[in-house]
Design a protein around this nucleic acid. Structure first.
Length: 782
DNA sequence: CAGTGAGCGAGCTTCCGCTTGACTT
């Protein structure tokens, strides 16, 4: 039996550390936090200086029980949770629950899982830092108060759906997406003309090479035409050549946030997919810990990388660098994300391997030399006016780190390549006369700011200091699950653009077109997200402020330094906040996001768009009118904010009677589950490509006939009076009563079609009395 | 499966941060 029990947070870490420490230590993991606030009454005694009431949650009881019995047997218990606010708190909870003396229990910390770091840690134990623990308690209690007081306000004042929620992190994340959308909606594109010429030069081997030159100015169409005119018949001569050298520097090793961004840009992975694959790599020992905000690498890792670079690329490519975190909110309890052994490659599935290779390349590149570039800028004289053109080329002199890796921009398309765009100019000399092919003035439009992707939202949140590496992916899941935000695509629209072209001494005008505003995998706010955000911003200004988290983090820091009482800090926040909550509950109207669109040309009544009980809708006339108002649901991609009067009128064209099939009317409408046709008291969902507003009988009749037979085949037996059916589904025959389904046993399935109503009723009664085990609700994981 | 658009007020929902397994349809 080992004399010492050492507890860490992660089981993968526990395995590694146990090997390092040997037989004197048994190393166990507590799997993160072991206690949390009770749910009843917020788990906080507000009158008593916000005293928290903690309990061990059900799912943690097993691990706590095991740790308790091991702790009892051990001579000494060592607490080795992460060195940050949450980690310190985990150690304190462990001490409390395991009955250890907080004042004497050995607390050790290390930032990297290496032999030297861990042995050093064991030689230098300290005790639990209660100031840091109190900072965590303040954080936890404040988050609980904000979440559990705001959410019920939404239930009362918005309603709509159950499980509306608000919180310090999620509500601000939604607000970012809402404001981005509004900025884009309000954006008006302007256009200007840019001139570019295609010129030619003859190189050493007497080959003619064409290249591009620009004048760098923006013109209105008249100005552009005038300029092109002034160039008719001109000679072009090289006036000046400048050669500048430049360099590129590699990016820092990955943190959680930068890994998510690069995997999104280069590999097209969602944030949750990246984390799932990274977890796999971590658990199999291939990479260091994947939830980190640190960019630093351990000494042993640096040595490893150095050797690898020397071996694979040579000494000229090596440039050891130490990276510093720019992010103030970083707590740096871990290393950057890096391969555990740089020599290793992986044999995982393709997706996992690509992520590993990305991490490998980024890590290696971070310790490699700068890339040296040479930029050539040629000024070109135009003989017929006083203007000049500029041609530039960029050539790589030494590739350095670019040999393995180059970081992508948010504007880059997904490709996964790691090169820079070289653009070569032919060899030019001052005074050289150049050939002329053509000159164009092309209309270019300004573009609105880009919508957030999952990864660029994470980047923004990190910049604002909101959320932590372990919560970025779950936060996105939450705001999508709450139906505040959706990840989707948007079709672009076609737009015309004008081109003036000077060729063969004359100017021609061409009209071309481009697709603009097309989006893929971007985050859009839903109408619910808009209404909730407006409501919260209006009534809870402070919490919704982008700097709220940063402000309270300063207070938490004061608590951690022992300069502030945590109960007082929470109290200072709570008093005005709770007054706002009370005031809002008492005075605020139900938020509907109402917007007037105009007047109905037929009834002359106003048309409004608003949030209804069942989602966004348009309405003709008011509730108080004698005649009942008319209602119609918005289409999935329409929004209260942007729907036009025309589009709204279009929505009232349903339901449509499109004629008779086999003697019965066919009605087309949009229902709870999308567009459908009804015929002879039966309902048929329309196929995706069928538009309920334009589809005619000829297109729909064959579908009805086909789906009708499919439905018949699926139905084994119908008890009309009892409203019970026996149906055949993908998992075999089952009973359907109203909205509820009842599973049959194998023997029952075999004679499903012959079951009598008595037998069926007995089965239902039996299943109601003995419901099958329900699958556990999945938590907010990936 | 395919209605509804308001108000009764039963009984329900909810936060952020740490961590990984164990579910069957």
């Amino acid at each position: 039996m080992a004399k010492n029990l050492l507890i860490v947070e992660s089981p993968a870490k526990a395995r590694t550390i146990e090997k390092i420490l040997g037989a004197d230590f048994e190393v166990k993991s507590c799997y993160g936090h072991i206690r949390d606030l009770e749910k009843d009454d917020m788990g906080i005694d507000i009158q008593n200086n916000f005293a928290p009431r903690y309990k061990v949650p059900e799912e943690k009881s097993k691990v706590v029980k095991e740790l308790k019995s091991l702790a009892k047997k051990a001579d000494e218990v060592w607490l080795a949770s992460d060195e940050d606010r949450e980690g310190e708190s985990i150690s304190w909870h462990l001490a409390e629950v395991l009955g250890l003396d907080v004042k004497t229990t050995k607390r050790i910390v290390f930032h990297e899982i290496t032999k030297s770091a861990i042995e050093r840690a064991v030689k230098n134990p300290r005790i639990i830092n209660m100031d840091l623990v109190n900072a965590q308690q303040a954080r936890r209690v404040l988050d609980r108060i904000v979440g559990f007081e705001l959410s019920p306000v939404l239930w009362r004042k918005i309603g709509m759906q159950r499980s509306l929620s608000a919180g310090r992190v999620q509500s601000v994340a939604v607000r970012l997406i809402v404001e981005k959308e509004r900025e884009i909606n309000q954006f008006k594109a302007t256009s200007s003309f840019r001139v570019e010429a295609i010129l030619t030069a003859t190189d050493n081997s007497n080959k003619t090479i064409s290249f591009k030159a620009e004048d760098g100015r923006k013109y209105e169409i008249e100005g552009a035409e005038k300029f092109l005119q002034s160039c008719i018949g001109a000679d072009y001569t090289v006036k000046d050549i400048q050669v500048k050298s430049g360099k590129r520097t590699p990016a820092a090793p990955f943190t959680t946030s930068t890994l998510q961004q690069e995997a999104s840009r280069k590999l097209g992975y969602s944030v949750s997919k990246t984390m799932l694959l990274a977890q796999k790599l971590y658990e199999s020992g291939k990479i260091s810990y994947m939830r980190t905000d640190s960019v630093s690498l351990s000494e042993t890792a640096l040595e490893d990388i150095k050797t690898e670079i020397n071996k694979s690329f040579g000494d000229a490519y090596l440039q050891p660098r130490a990276y510093k975190n720019k992010n103030e909110s970083a707590q740096e309890a871990h290393e950057a994300i890096r391969p555990t052994f740089i020599q290793n490659s992986t044999d995982d599935d393709a997706d996992t391997r690509r992520l590993y290779e990305l991490i490998w390349k980024r890590t290696i590149a971070s310790q490699m030399s700068d890339a040296i570039l040479e930029k050539t800028i040629a000024k070109i004289n135009i003989s017929t006016n006083n203007e000049e053109l500029t041609a530039s080329g960029e050539v790589m002199k030494f590739d350095g780190f670019l040999k393995v890796y180059s970081e992508s921009n948010d504007d880059d398309e997904i490709d996964g390549t790691a090169t820079i765009q070289e653009s070569r100019l032919p060899n030019l000399t001052v005074g050289q006369k150049l050939g002329f092919e053509e000159m164009s003035a092309i209309e270019r439009f300004t573009r609105p700011t880009a919508r957030y992707t999952e990864a660029s939202l994470v980047k923004k949140l990190e910049e604002l200091g909101i959320g932590r590496p372990s919560t970025y992916a779950p936060t996105i899941s939450t705001i999508v699950k709450r139906n505040y935000v959706e990840k989707r695509e948007k079709e672009g629209t076609k737009r015309e653009l004008r081109i003036l072209k000077l060729k063969d001494e004359s100017i021609i005008k061409i009209t071309s077109s481009e697709i603009t505003g097309a989006e893929k995998n971007k985050l859009f706010p839903t109408d619910l997200g808009l209404v909730v955000t407006d409501f919260l911003s209006q009534h809870f200004n402070e919490v919704m402020d982008y700097s709220f988290t940063a402000n309270i983090e300063e207070e938490f820091d004061k608590i951690a330094e022992g300069k502030q009482q945590w109960g007082k800090m929470v109290g200072d926040f709570y008093k005005p906040f709770h007054e706002d909550v009370e005031h809002t509950l008492e005075n605020a109207d139900r938020a509907k996001g109402e917007r007037e669109l105009g007047t109905d040309p037929v009834s002359k009544k106003p048309i409004i768009a608003r949030m209804g009980r069942y989602g966004p809708m348009v309405q003709i006339g008011a509730q108080e009118d004698e005649e009942k108002p008319k209602f119609a649901k918005l289409k999935p991609q329409q929004s209260i904010e942007t729907i036009t009067l025309e589009e709204a009128l279009e929505l009232f064209k349903l339901p449509r009677n499109i004629g008779q099939f086999e003697g019965d009317d066919v009605l087309v409408n949009i229902g709870r589950f999308g567009p459908y046709a009804s015929h002879n008291k039966k309902f048929y969902s329309l196929n995706k490509e069928m538009d309920p507003y334009t589809i005619d009988l000829e297109q729909i009749a064959p579908m009805i006939a086909e789906k009708r037979t499919a439905k018949d085949e699926r139905t084994l037996k119908v008890f009309e009076k009892e409203k019970i059916q026996i149906l055949k589904g993908p998992y075999g025959a089952y009973i359907k009563q109203g909205l509820r389904n009842f599973k049959l046993t194998k023997e029952q399935q075999e004679k499903a079609a012959d079951l009598t109503i008595e037998e069926v009723k007995a089965i239902i009664e039996h299943l109601k009395a003995n419901p099958p085990k329900k699958t556990r609700k999945r938590k907010n994981s990936f």
